Every structure is written in structure tokens, then in C-alpha cells.
Computed example of a mutant assay.
Amino acid sequence: MKPIKSLRGKLFFWYITSLITVTAFFYFAVHIYTLPYRNIFFTILLIFLALEGFFIVRKMTDGLSKLSSKIKTITSKNLNEKVTDIESEDEIGELAFSFNQLLDRLLQAFKRERQFIGDVAHELKTPLATQRSNIEIALTKERSNEEYKKVLAEVLSDNNRITTTLKNILDLAWSEAESAKVKKDIVNLSDVVSEIVEIATKLGLAKKVRVFGKVDDRIAILGSEDKLSRAFLNVVDNAIKYTPSGGSVRISLTKKNEQAKFQVKDTGVGITKADQPHIFERFYRGSRSGKVYGSGLGLSISQAIISAHKGTIEVKSDIGRGTTIITHLPLH
């Protein structure tokens, strides 16, 4: 017979055995054998049962006291500490194990927050420093209108970088907020992707990248049109950025297994096997990013938005042969 590990089981077992023992004692000691000193034996029996119950309850309260004492010492600075002095396999042990898992999740959340703040500061520091430098240089002496225009153009470019970064951060905060709820509007995904194909065609002209679109009609899902458009556009923008002149980007929207399948395939530089697991991480830029400007937030935002719509996004890539990003979303 396996030992009872559950505190609830132990208490129930103690309760039942106590009832049976007391009943049996009265039956045999009083009615059958009429034992002498039965009152003394009964008192000893009650003391024994009470002590057994006391030890069971004490074990419960000791475990809870240890856990409570440990919880009081935990702060944001020592989340790596764990409850290690509770090794029982009962409910108290399960509670300690769950608490340790909670500490692990909190530790990871704090690490991500600190990294996020550091990354944001880094992303804003460079354009702000460049902007300030340009303004200071422009003010050192009198300059011609053309020189002032050049400085203002550079300042505007830096300002656009800051604006883009802040917009990306706000989008990422929205998509990852626990309280964020996607609007349950009916979105005509065919129209959304058709518009993105037109935008991509214009973006491709500047780099001499050909854009092809294949969009099936009447594909609809529930969600936010604005957010989905942003998610898809981020993927397409990335494809065009990393595709050299003369290359191509193919955008398609089809139905497959009660899902909408959005696919973007390019003939760009490709993504290394080492980089592929990280491309959806915030501020991550691959080893082959080169001089291509970007904040490293685009695909993070896309993944968060797609996830908020109960969808999936995955990448397939070969160096020198291009990259394919595939998104699946549940149909309406």
C-alpha cells in the first residue's frame, strides 16, 4: 500500500480511523467485555488520537510558516532565491513548487523589462545625439540658406527615426499588454492585403525590387484591421529592405484548412540558422543586417499582433536564396 502523501488524505484518514477506533473501543470495552479501567484506557486512546492529529496539523502549519517567512524576504532584487527547505510531496510542497515557478517568471519579466528600457534608451540616444550635434554645428557660424536646409533635412530624418521608434514601442506595449483586447470586427483580409501589395509595389520601385501579389477573394477574419495591416506591412517592409536590386518579393493570401494563410517570399540575403530563432525578439537585428536601417522591433510587433489574433507566424530561410514568412489566422 502506497503511503498517503496528500494532507487532505492524511486528515481524512485520521478522522475515519479515529471514529472507527472510538466506536470499536466502546463496543468491545463496554458492551462485550466490560473491561475494568475502561475510562483510563479511553482517556489514553483520546490522547493518542489527539497527538496524531496535532502532528498532522503541525506539519501543515510548519510548512506554511516557512513559506510565509520566505515570501516576506523576497523583493525585486533577490528573485533568484527559491524555497528550498520544503521537500514534502503534499499540498504544501506543491505550493512551494508553484511559488518557485512564479519567482522564475517574475525574474524573467524583470530581466525583459530592464533589457527593454536599456534597448529603448540606446535606440533613442543615437538619433538624439546626432540631432543635437547637427544643431550645435549649424549655430557655430552664419550659413547659407542651402546649408541650413541641409541641416534641417538631417534633423528631420533623425526626428522621423525617433517618431518611428516611439510608435513601434507603443504598438509593442499595446500588443503585449495583458489587458489588451482585440476588437472583434469583421476584417476583409483580401482588401487589406491588396492594399499592402499596392504599397509594397511603390516601396519596391525605389529599390528596383519587383513585387508580385496573389490575393484570393472574400477572406475575412475577426480582429482589428489597423493592427493586422501594421503586422503585415512590417513583414513586407522587411522583405523589401533585405532584397537587393533586381530581386523580387511575392505576397500571397489564400485559404487553407479553415485558416487564412498570408505569405511573403523574397529573394533577399536570407537569415542564418543561428539568427532564425531570435528574429521575433524585440530589438534583435541579425548578423546579416549590415547597413540596413531598422529598430529591430518590426517582426516583434508583427508576432505580438498575430498572437493577439490567435494566429501563428513562422520563418523559413536559406542564405543567399531568400526568406519566407508564413502567417496563419483563424477564418471568420
Rank of each mutant, 00 (worst) to 15 (best):
S179V: 14
I251G: 05
K70N: 05
K70S: 03
N134T: 12
S68L: 04
E178F: 14
I92T: 08
F26R: 10
D104P: 02
S289C: 09
S76A: 15
L152F: 13
G53P: 09
F99L: 12
I279N: 00
I306K: 10
D85K: 12
R285L: 15
Y37N: 09
K265Q: 10
V22N: 02
S248R: 12
K310P: 00
L297G: 09
T323I: 06
L107M: 04
L170P: 00
K125M: 05
L46T: 09
T73M: 05
S248E: 10
K273Q: 08
K72M: 12
G9K: 08
D104G: 07
N78A: 12
A153T: 15
A173H: 10
K167I: 05
I40C: 03
I137R: 13
I117L: 01
Y27I: 13
T327G: 05
T272Y: 03
L166H: 02
E52Y: 05
K310I: 00
S157T: 03
P127H: 09
K59V: 01
S133R: 14
L222K: 14
I44V: 13
S287T: 11
G9L: 11
D318I: 09
L222W: 09
L222G: 07
V215Q: 08
I301T: 07
T130R: 11
R38F: 06
V151D: 10
S194N: 15
D85E: 15
